[in-house]
Amino acid sequence: MFAEFLQFLFSGITVGAIYALVGLGFAIIYNASNVINFAQGEFVMLGGMGTVFFIGLGLPMPLAVLLAVSLTVIVGFGLERFAVEPARDAPIVTLIIITIGASIFLRGAAQLVWDRNFHSVASFSGSDPIMIGGASILPQSLWILGCTVVIVIALHMFFNHSMTGKSIIATSHNPLAAKLMGINTSMVLLMSFGLSALLGASAGILIAPISLTYTGVGIMLGLKGFCAAVLGGLGKPMGAIAGGLLVGISEAMTAGYISSAYKDAVAFIIILAVLFLMPNGLFGGRGTERV
């Protein structure tokens, strides 16, 4: 009985960590720019498919991963410069449509350059399950958890101890004041998109050995990541991580104990409940209306 629970918990935490990484990407961009980047899921796709592509060229795995992440970061920069920047002062609806357009564009481009089939990526260190308390966990799941922890710590250091990190925080609190203080806010925006792309690509690469990857993989992962970010109160990095894990574990428990059919609905039902009862998210503070 307990073994079963543990099994559901393992798969919940694994996928939850991925949602957390994606949600974190949403939070960082939102912090820097008040933009919700609906193309976040495509970063996840680019990470996974990019790795498949570079491995296909005969490159060793670490190099392929590095190139895939770089490619995604460049796309992130491009997205900020050519799609978001020119519409900075536009209303929310407009920005939402621009980033959704970007996500469709990127998916279309990926389907054109690559294909629409499923691809597998080899696990980082074997695929023989490790048994813990009667439940099995994959070495890849440990990789996911380990990498997520490392990334979160690194981000924390970055935001609190580096000049660039601090200027991102400053910009998120008050863009005008930050600008007056001599912070290059446009650079901060660019950085935030690059950083988000890095997070998304990492998530995509980490999950690929477990769930296969294809050009449409970013849609659901992106939306769930958005749920995680909103659940945590938009713009709260730690909230996004908590939100991601919460969504992942609830999903796994629902699939295990209630109905696997409604697994995907869980994230959205939680989010609706939270929004209706607490319109600013679980860990959210003040409202976000821009007048």
Binding site: I36, I92, A265, F268, I269, L275, T288
Partner: peptide, 23 residues
């Protein structure tokens, strides 16, 4: 409840509503 939401929260709320219906 939906029309009480603003901006991105409204986007999320309506998005979630549509997705739950589709699921």
């Amino acid at each position: 409840p939906v029309m009480k939401l603003r901006g991105h929260y409204l986007a999320m709320g309506t998005l979630g509503m549509g997705i739950v219906i589709s699921i």
